[in-house]
Design a protein around this nucleic acid. Structure first.
Lengths: 169, 169
DNA sequence: CGTTAAGTTCAAAATTTCTTGAACTCGCCC
DNA sequence: GGGCGAGTTCAAGAAATTTTGAACTTAACG
């Protein structure tokens, strides 16, 4: 166990269980397009029964301080980890969130929705252009309508999916 | 409109509508981690009322023959486009699939599920390791169980999600 | 205040991923 | 069979992404 409060500066390497967990999360991260380092960090924190400091994490992985700092930021951004403070200790301890619904919701909110934000304007523009076009030149008008539906249905589905995931743990 | 049957070798560039559609799909591709070129190809095909040949696509995009060939392969692999043959014409024409359910299903099947395939073995291994570990050394056993549930729920949810999407178009 | 430790930032290096283009395969037609 | 056009492959190059590490910021403490 690493980092009791006076911080033993442990640089213990990974035990096999940690390695396996990390490998699992690395695969998962691949699916959603997150870098390996982020998965490794999450894996280390997931394997630990107690919150760890940044230096604990660095000690366990072959990653620089900078990489860990940025990885932690990403994980915090979508709520996959939470900072914990311990009175009388300057350092910030990191604790995993292991409620998948919360993580998924954060991920959607922070990494997916921003990408879909300007769809309405773009779709309107596409509708306009397709109307102004010589009908013979043939962008099929049902395609424009179809895109609209894709957008609406995507937006409508997100809460449903979150609700679905919400029934999980 | 490009490529009537005797193939006019048109190298027309993109009209604005095409540019806008492509930009839309490029964003979408970003969300699911597909390269820009794949999105561009899909955009060109989506904009066209009739199926196009590979050379039509090359003529419209700044992409080499090789890149287009590989991009088309990816799109075919998960059913986002379909090859069409025209009697008396050696070339293969490409037609978009614009049914989102089919595309999503193909994508899950080909790009996501393979990544989750070995979870059962990995999870069993993790369970074993965590049992063999000094309990004091503290991988919380509920975490191992939680991972199991993540896996089960993920598998169970895929059909539900596909069904949800299935109600769309 | 000045010192120090924790954590962040960012330009440059390393790595990974994508694209190019020329060589190759395949099947059709004469 | 030989030639040709359509399409694929893959090693090398280009581009994008990730990581490093040293300089910087911030805030706690004496």
């Amino acid at each position: 166990m690493t980092s009791t409060l006076p911080a033993p500066l442990s640089s213990a390497s990974l035990v096999e269980l940690e390695t396996e967990l990390i490998e699992l999360f690395v695969r998962l991260a691949g699916v959603v397009g997150l870098p390996r380092s982020v998965a490794e960090i999450y894996g280390v924190l997931f394997a630990s029964p107690t919150p760890l400091t940044m230096d604990d994490v660095i000690g366990k992985l072959h990653l620089s301080r900078g990489a860990v700092s940025q990885g932690l930021r990403q994980l915090r951004r979508f709520g996959a980890i939470a900072p914990v403070s311990v009175p009388g200790d300057r350092r910030t301890y990191l604790q995993v969130e292991d409620n998948l619904r919360k993580i998924a919701a954060g991920f959607l909110q922070e990494q997916v929705l921003p990408q879909l934000e300007d769809w309405p304007q773009r779709l309107r523009r596409i509708q306009d252009l397709s109307r102004d076009l010589p009908a013979s030149d043939g962008f099929p008008p049902d395609r424009a309508r179809k895109l609209d539906r894709w957008h609406q249905r995507t937006r409508d589905s997100i809460p449903v999916v979150l609700d679905l995931i919400g029934r999980w743990e």
